[in-house]
Protein backbone atom coordinates (compact mmCIF):
# COMPACT_ATOMS: atom_id res chain seq x y z
CA UNK A 1 0.00 0.00 0.00
CA UNK A 2 2.65 2.44 1.05
CA UNK A 3 4.45 2.61 -2.26
CA UNK A 4 1.31 3.28 -4.26
CA UNK A 5 0.90 6.85 -5.36
CA UNK A 6 -1.63 8.78 -3.32
CA UNK A 7 -4.15 10.54 -5.59
CA UNK A 8 -6.70 12.08 -3.28
CA UNK A 9 -6.09 13.04 0.30
CA UNK A 10 -8.91 14.44 2.41
CA UNK A 11 -7.99 15.64 5.88
CA UNK A 12 -10.51 16.47 8.58
CA UNK A 13 -13.28 17.47 6.21
CA UNK A 14 -16.20 19.14 7.95
CA UNK A 15 -19.38 20.49 6.40
CA UNK A 16 -22.04 22.38 8.33
CA UNK A 17 -25.51 23.24 7.07
CA UNK A 18 -26.60 25.84 9.57
CA UNK A 19 -26.68 23.90 12.83
CA UNK A 20 -26.41 20.51 11.17
CA UNK A 21 -22.96 18.97 10.88
CA UNK A 22 -23.44 16.71 7.86
CA UNK A 23 -19.78 15.71 7.61
CA UNK A 24 -17.64 15.72 10.75
CA UNK A 25 -13.84 15.75 10.31
CA UNK A 26 -13.65 12.87 7.89
CA UNK A 27 -10.26 11.87 6.52
CA UNK A 28 -9.88 9.60 3.55
CA UNK A 29 -7.32 8.63 0.95
CA UNK A 30 -7.54 7.11 -2.47
CA UNK A 31 -4.47 5.61 -4.09
CA UNK A 32 -3.62 4.78 -7.63
CA UNK A 33 -5.32 1.64 -8.94
CA UNK A 34 -7.73 1.41 -6.01
CA UNK A 35 -11.45 0.92 -5.96
CA UNK A 36 -12.28 2.51 -2.63
CA UNK A 37 -15.77 2.49 -1.20
CA UNK A 38 -17.60 4.84 1.12
CA UNK A 39 -20.53 3.24 2.85
CA UNK A 40 -22.91 4.15 5.63
CA UNK A 41 -26.59 4.34 6.51
CA UNK A 42 -28.96 6.84 4.88
CA UNK A 43 -28.18 10.40 5.80
CA UNK A 44 -24.66 9.57 6.95
CA UNK A 45 -23.26 12.39 4.85
CA UNK A 46 -21.70 10.43 2.01
CA UNK A 47 -23.18 12.49 -0.80
CA UNK A 48 -22.31 15.66 1.07
CA UNK A 49 -18.74 14.42 1.27
CA UNK A 50 -18.73 13.94 -2.52
CA UNK A 51 -20.23 17.37 -3.05
CA UNK A 52 -17.48 18.94 -0.99
CA UNK A 53 -14.74 17.13 -2.82
CA UNK A 54 -16.13 17.98 -6.26
CA UNK A 55 -16.60 21.67 -5.47
CA UNK A 56 -20.39 21.76 -5.34
CA UNK A 57 -20.19 22.75 -1.68
CA UNK A 58 -17.42 24.72 -0.07
CA UNK A 59 -16.43 22.73 3.03
CA UNK A 60 -16.50 24.44 6.42
CA UNK A 61 -13.19 22.98 7.54
CA UNK A 62 -10.53 20.59 6.37
CA UNK A 63 -8.29 20.08 3.39
CA UNK A 64 -8.92 18.37 0.13
CA UNK A 65 -5.66 17.70 -1.64
CA UNK A 66 -5.27 16.29 -5.08
CA UNK A 67 -1.93 14.81 -6.08
CA UNK A 68 -2.03 14.29 -9.84
CA UNK A 69 0.82 12.11 -11.07
CA UNK A 70 3.74 14.17 -12.24
CA UNK A 71 2.05 17.45 -11.37
CA UNK A 72 2.19 19.62 -8.27
CA UNK A 73 -0.33 19.04 -5.50
CA UNK A 74 -3.49 21.14 -5.61
CA UNK A 75 -5.81 22.11 -2.80
CA UNK A 76 -9.40 21.74 -4.02
CA UNK A 77 -11.18 23.70 -1.28
CA UNK A 78 -13.36 26.43 -2.71
CA UNK A 79 -12.62 25.61 -6.33
CA UNK A 80 -15.53 25.67 -8.76
CA UNK A 81 -16.81 22.22 -9.82
CA UNK A 82 -15.66 22.74 -13.39
CA UNK A 83 -12.11 23.44 -12.22
CA UNK A 84 -12.13 20.28 -10.13
CA UNK A 85 -13.28 18.31 -13.15
CA UNK A 86 -10.58 19.89 -15.28
CA UNK A 87 -8.02 18.66 -12.78
CA UNK A 88 -9.04 15.11 -13.43
CA UNK A 89 -11.70 14.26 -10.90
CA UNK A 90 -15.08 13.31 -12.35
CA UNK A 91 -18.29 12.15 -10.72
CA UNK A 92 -21.76 10.71 -11.20
CA UNK A 93 -24.88 11.59 -9.24
CA UNK A 94 -27.04 9.60 -6.89
CA UNK A 95 -30.25 10.98 -8.37
CA UNK A 96 -29.38 10.66 -12.04
CA UNK A 97 -28.60 14.01 -13.60
CA UNK A 98 -28.44 13.44 -17.32
CA UNK A 99 -29.17 16.05 -19.96
CA UNK A 100 -32.48 14.42 -20.73
CA UNK A 101 -33.36 16.27 -23.94
CA UNK A 102 -29.99 15.60 -25.50
CA UNK A 103 -29.08 12.38 -27.22
CA UNK A 104 -27.04 9.72 -25.49
CA UNK A 105 -24.03 10.58 -27.65
CA UNK A 106 -24.39 14.31 -26.96
CA UNK A 107 -24.42 13.63 -23.24
CA UNK A 108 -21.00 12.07 -23.52
CA UNK A 109 -19.86 14.81 -25.88
CA UNK A 110 -20.53 17.34 -23.13
CA UNK A 111 -17.94 15.52 -21.08
CA UNK A 112 -15.37 16.39 -23.76
CA UNK A 113 -16.03 20.09 -23.30
CA UNK A 114 -13.21 20.72 -20.86
CA UNK A 115 -10.70 18.85 -23.02
CA UNK A 116 -11.48 20.78 -26.20
CA UNK A 117 -11.08 24.42 -27.05
CA UNK A 118 -13.21 25.77 -29.91
CA UNK A 119 -14.51 29.18 -28.84
CA UNK A 120 -17.36 31.27 -30.18
CA UNK A 121 -15.58 32.75 -33.17
CA UNK A 122 -13.97 29.53 -34.24
CA UNK A 123 -17.27 27.71 -33.84
CA UNK A 124 -18.86 30.21 -36.22
CA UNK A 125 -16.09 30.08 -38.79
CA UNK A 126 -15.75 26.34 -38.31
CA UNK A 127 -12.25 26.11 -39.66
CA UNK A 128 -10.41 22.89 -40.32
CA UNK A 129 -9.12 22.59 -36.77
CA UNK A 130 -12.61 22.92 -35.34
CA UNK A 131 -14.04 20.36 -37.72
CA UNK A 132 -11.30 17.96 -36.75
CA UNK A 133 -11.90 18.61 -33.07
CA UNK A 134 -15.64 18.01 -33.51
CA UNK A 135 -14.97 14.70 -35.22
CA UNK A 136 -12.57 13.77 -32.44
CA UNK A 137 -15.26 14.57 -29.87
CA UNK A 138 -17.78 12.38 -31.66
CA UNK A 139 -15.40 9.46 -32.10
CA UNK A 140 -14.11 9.47 -28.54
CA UNK A 141 -17.63 9.73 -27.19
CA UNK A 142 -18.81 6.88 -29.34
CA UNK A 143 -15.92 4.71 -28.21
CA UNK A 144 -16.86 5.43 -24.59
CA UNK A 145 -20.45 4.47 -25.28
CA UNK A 146 -19.20 1.20 -26.66
CA UNK A 147 -17.21 0.62 -23.51
CA UNK A 148 -20.27 0.94 -21.30
CA UNK A 149 -22.40 -0.99 -23.79
CA UNK A 150 -24.61 1.84 -25.01
CA UNK A 151 -23.38 2.22 -28.59
CA UNK A 152 -26.69 0.95 -29.95
CA UNK A 153 -28.63 3.76 -28.32
CA UNK A 154 -26.24 6.57 -29.31
CA UNK A 155 -28.98 8.54 -31.08
CA UNK A 156 -31.73 7.99 -28.51
CA UNK A 157 -32.75 10.77 -26.19
CA UNK A 158 -31.17 10.17 -22.81
CA UNK A 159 -34.55 10.37 -21.08
CA UNK A 160 -35.78 7.35 -23.06
CA UNK A 161 -33.11 5.02 -21.74
CA UNK A 162 -33.99 2.44 -19.10
CA UNK A 163 -32.79 3.21 -15.61
CA UNK A 164 -29.76 0.96 -15.54
CA UNK A 165 -28.57 2.30 -18.87
CA UNK A 166 -28.91 5.87 -17.61
CA UNK A 167 -26.56 5.04 -14.77
CA UNK A 168 -24.03 3.62 -17.19
CA UNK A 169 -24.40 6.68 -19.40
CA UNK A 170 -23.52 8.86 -16.42
CA UNK A 171 -20.35 6.85 -16.01
CA UNK A 172 -19.47 7.23 -19.69
CA UNK A 173 -20.10 10.96 -19.51
CA UNK A 174 -17.84 11.30 -16.49
CA UNK A 175 -15.14 9.27 -18.21
CA UNK A 176 -15.25 11.58 -21.19
CA UNK A 177 -13.64 14.26 -19.03
CA UNK A 178 -10.51 12.09 -18.85
CA UNK A 179 -10.38 11.74 -15.07
CA UNK A 180 -7.75 9.86 -13.13
CA UNK A 181 -10.16 9.53 -10.26
CA UNK A 182 -13.83 8.74 -10.66
CA UNK A 183 -16.38 9.29 -7.89
CA UNK A 184 -19.51 7.17 -8.28
CA UNK A 185 -22.51 7.98 -6.08
CA UNK A 186 -24.58 4.82 -5.70
CA UNK A 187 -24.05 3.55 -9.23
CA UNK A 188 -26.11 0.42 -8.58
CA UNK A 189 -29.13 2.15 -7.03
CA UNK A 190 -32.33 0.88 -8.60
CA UNK A 191 -30.63 -1.85 -10.61
CA UNK A 192 -31.69 -5.50 -10.66
CA UNK A 193 -29.14 -8.21 -9.69
CA UNK A 194 -28.28 -8.89 -13.34
CA UNK A 195 -27.57 -5.23 -14.02
CA UNK A 196 -25.62 -4.94 -10.79
CA UNK A 197 -23.44 -7.83 -11.90
CA UNK A 198 -22.72 -6.10 -15.20
CA UNK A 199 -21.93 -2.89 -13.39
CA UNK A 200 -19.58 -4.77 -11.12
CA UNK A 201 -17.61 -5.90 -14.17
CA UNK A 202 -17.74 -2.48 -15.78
CA UNK A 203 -16.26 -0.81 -12.71
CA UNK A 204 -13.45 -3.36 -12.52
CA UNK A 205 -12.80 -2.90 -16.22
CA UNK A 206 -12.60 0.87 -15.88
CA UNK A 207 -10.21 0.52 -12.99
CA UNK A 208 -7.92 -1.94 -14.75
CA UNK A 209 -8.00 -0.94 -18.40
CA UNK A 210 -8.31 2.80 -18.08
CA UNK A 211 -6.07 3.19 -15.04
CA UNK A 212 -8.74 5.24 -13.32
CA UNK A 213 -8.94 5.04 -9.56
CA UNK A 214 -12.48 4.82 -8.21
CA UNK A 215 -14.21 5.98 -5.08
CA UNK A 216 -17.76 4.76 -4.85
CA UNK A 217 -20.69 5.16 -2.51
CA UNK A 218 -22.85 2.11 -2.45
CA UNK A 219 -25.60 0.46 -0.47
CA UNK A 220 -25.32 -2.86 -2.26
CA UNK A 221 -23.06 -4.75 0.14
CA UNK A 222 -22.40 -7.59 -2.24
CA UNK A 223 -21.01 -5.21 -4.83
CA UNK A 224 -18.94 -3.33 -2.31
CA UNK A 225 -17.45 -6.40 -0.67
CA UNK A 226 -16.73 -7.96 -4.07
CA UNK A 227 -14.79 -5.22 -5.72
CA UNK A 228 -13.62 -2.59 -3.31
CA UNK A 229 -10.71 -2.28 -1.00
CA UNK A 230 -10.33 -0.24 1.19
CA UNK A 231 -13.78 0.53 2.54
CA UNK A 232 -14.60 3.60 4.63
CA UNK A 233 -17.68 3.64 6.81
CA UNK A 234 -19.54 6.77 7.86
CA UNK A 235 -22.33 7.27 10.33
CA UNK A 236 -23.93 10.55 11.38
CA UNK A 237 -21.24 12.48 9.52
CA UNK A 238 -18.35 10.74 11.27
CA UNK A 239 -16.00 8.13 9.91
CA UNK A 240 -16.40 5.12 12.16
CA UNK A 241 -14.21 2.56 10.42
CA UNK A 242 -11.86 1.89 7.56
CA UNK A 243 -10.09 -1.15 6.22
CA UNK A 244 -10.34 -4.20 3.99
CA UNK A 245 -13.72 -5.86 3.38
CA UNK A 246 -12.87 -8.52 5.96
CA UNK A 247 -11.89 -5.97 8.60
CA UNK A 248 -15.08 -4.02 7.94
CA UNK A 249 -17.24 -7.12 8.20
CA UNK A 250 -15.81 -7.88 11.60
CA UNK A 251 -15.65 -4.32 12.89
CA UNK A 252 -17.96 -4.09 15.94
CA UNK A 253 -18.98 -0.47 15.30
CA UNK A 254 -19.90 -1.24 11.73
CA UNK A 255 -21.92 -4.27 12.69
CA UNK A 256 -23.76 -2.15 15.19
CA UNK A 257 -24.34 0.75 12.88
CA UNK A 258 -24.93 -0.74 9.56
CA UNK A 259 -24.43 -4.39 8.88
CA UNK A 260 -26.19 -5.42 12.04
CA UNK A 261 -29.34 -6.61 10.39
CA UNK A 262 -27.50 -8.38 7.62
CA UNK A 263 -25.22 -10.40 9.89
CA UNK A 264 -28.17 -11.35 12.04
CA UNK A 265 -30.08 -12.66 9.07
Amino acid sequence: MAEKHKLLEVKGLTMDFGGLRAVDSVSLEVHEGEIAALIGPNGAGKTTFFNCVTGIYNPTKGDILLHPKGLPTRRLNGLKPNKVTEMGLARTFQNIRLFSDMTVLENVMIGRHCRTSAGIFRSIIRDKGVRKEEQEIVETSYQLLKKVGLAESANEFAKNLPYGAQRRLEIARAMATEPFLLLLDEPAAGMNPQETGDLDQLICKISEEEQIAILLIEHDMKLVMNISNPIYVMEYGKKIAEGSPQQIKDHPKVIEAYLGEETDA
Binding site: I56, L98, F99, I110, A118
Partner: peptide, 24 residues
Protein backbone atom coordinates in the same frame (compact mmCIF):
# COMPACT_ATOMS: atom_id res chain seq x y z
CA UNK B 1 -20.97 23.51 -31.81
CA UNK B 2 -19.13 22.92 -28.60
CA UNK B 3 -20.51 26.22 -27.29
CA UNK B 4 -24.08 25.40 -28.31
CA UNK B 5 -23.98 22.02 -26.64
CA UNK B 6 -22.73 23.65 -23.46
CA UNK B 7 -25.73 26.04 -23.58
CA UNK B 8 -28.15 23.17 -23.96
CA UNK B 9 -26.47 21.24 -21.17
CA UNK B 10 -26.79 24.31 -18.96
CA UNK B 11 -30.51 24.43 -19.73
CA UNK B 12 -30.96 20.75 -19.01
CA UNK B 13 -29.15 20.56 -15.68
CA UNK B 14 -26.99 23.29 -14.26
CA UNK B 15 -25.28 21.20 -11.59
CA UNK B 16 -24.45 18.31 -13.88
CA UNK B 17 -23.26 20.85 -16.42
CA UNK B 18 -20.65 22.43 -14.15
CA UNK B 19 -19.71 19.05 -12.77
CA UNK B 20 -18.85 18.01 -16.33
CA UNK B 21 -16.30 20.78 -16.55
CA UNK B 22 -18.28 23.58 -18.15
CA UNK B 23 -17.62 27.07 -16.85
CA UNK B 24 -21.04 28.33 -15.87
Amino acid sequence: SRIGRAWIALREDEIACVAMGIDM
